[in-house]
Amino acid sequence: MPTISEQAICIRQWDFSETSQTVSLFGRDTGIFRGIAKGSRRPKSNFSGGIDLLTLGDVVSIMKPGRDLATITEWGLHRVWWRIRRDAAANRVAYFMSESSSRMLNQHDPHPAVFDALVDGLDRLEGGSSHDIVLTRYLWTLLVESGYKPELKVLESNIDPETETVLFSPKEGGVIDGPEVPGRWRVRVTTLSMLEKIIVEDQPDGVDPVSVNRAAKLLAAYMREILGSEPTTLGLVFPDLAGGRV
């Protein structure tokens, strides 16, 4: 029964009893796993008063082979992101990033780069960064690390000269050359250029908010197609994408 100590973010939590919790944690070294924290709500416990949603902590857990739930023995609160608790828009973005993680990643499949990107995204929300830039950067890392990096290369022959758009196929994984058929989307070249700028530059200058918003929506819609169903929080962040719209 290995005992694991690592940093983790709580991405879901349920009250198991008056004093105990069941949680889903995203561990930097372990990946996503579920566990039970007995006595976590007791005042004098090893859990900093309880494990709250979207907080960062140092967790100690025991993984028993064949068991769905790990036994969490300690939780040392490390960071609370206060803006997402008082700013409704930032809260929706944070919840969408959290749900996207749990939907795209398998349990017990470590993805330290995604973990770091989630922490970075929550830090940027705390600092007041553009929500669309935060989402674009995070979704890009999530897609790349889960094996779904979209192809963004644009050739002159791909561009429709009248609309300055190219075809993007979620089924084929990005920008393509071919006929316009159902399931392929028209995407502005400026949207793809802005997407590349955001993922390359840590603090991009001269960004067009409209193009940034379109870039974030493109990645969110692409992820939805990969999942085959719509994350419940997607429509809260992008109402015009709700119900399968693109």
Rank of each mutant, 00 (worst) to 15 (best):
T73G: 14
W140R: 13
L143Q: 02
K171Y: 05
V187P: 03
E151A: 12
A37Q: 02
G206N: 04
T233P: 03
L105T: 05
L142A: 06
G178Q: 04
G244S: 00
D109H: 14
V119T: 04
E6N: 12
F168W: 03
R186A: 04
P110D: 06
N213G: 13
G183N: 00
L241Q: 07
R224S: 07
G76C: 09
V166F: 08
L125H: 05
I62P: 10
Y138G: 12
T3V: 12
I176M: 00
P150T: 05
L152T: 12
A220N: 11
M194H: 09
V181M: 03
K149R: 13
P150A: 06
R103P: 11
T71C: 14
S129G: 15
R79V: 00
D205Y: 11
E180R: 07
A89L: 10
F47C: 05
T163W: 15
I36R: 14
F96Q: 00
N91Q: 04
E201T: 10
L77R: 01
T190P: 11
T165L: 09
V119H: 04
K149Q: 11
V175A: 04
V119G: 04
E151C: 13
P179A: 02
V134S: 08
L54Q: 05
P179H: 01
L69T: 04
G127E: 15
I176E: 00
R85S: 05
A8T: 05
L236E: 10
G49R: 01
F16E: 14
G243R: 00
H111A: 05
E201G: 13
I51N: 02
Y95E: 10
L105I: 14
I198C: 03
T71P: 11
E196K: 12
T136S: 04
H78P: 07
L122M: 01
I84R: 05
P170K: 01
I226F: 07
S229T: 04
G128S: 11
P231I: 00
D240P: 06
G206I: 02
T191E: 02
R86S: 06
T191P: 01
E180M: 10
K149C: 12
P161L: 03
V237N: 06
G147E: 03
E225Y: 07
T55K: 06
R83I: 03
H108G: 12
F26P: 05
W82K: 09
I159Y: 05
K38T: 11
S130Q: 11
L192M: 03
S61P: 09
V189R: 00
L155P: 15
D240M: 03
T73Q: 09
K64P: 05
L195R: 09
V166K: 01
S48H: 03
G76A: 13
L167W: 00
N213H: 06
L54W: 08
L241M: 08
K171G: 08
L118K: 06
G183T: 00
A113Q: 14
I11Q: 00
T3W: 07
A221G: 15
E6L: 15
A113N: 10
S101M: 14
P110R: 07
L142N: 03
W81T: 01
D202E: 06
G76P: 09
I199L: 04
R224F: 10
L69G: 08
D132R: 15
L118I: 06
D120L: 11
G228D: 03
G27E: 10
E230W: 01
A70Q: 08
L56K: 12
A90T: 14
G128M: 12
D29N: 10
R12F: 00
V59H: 01
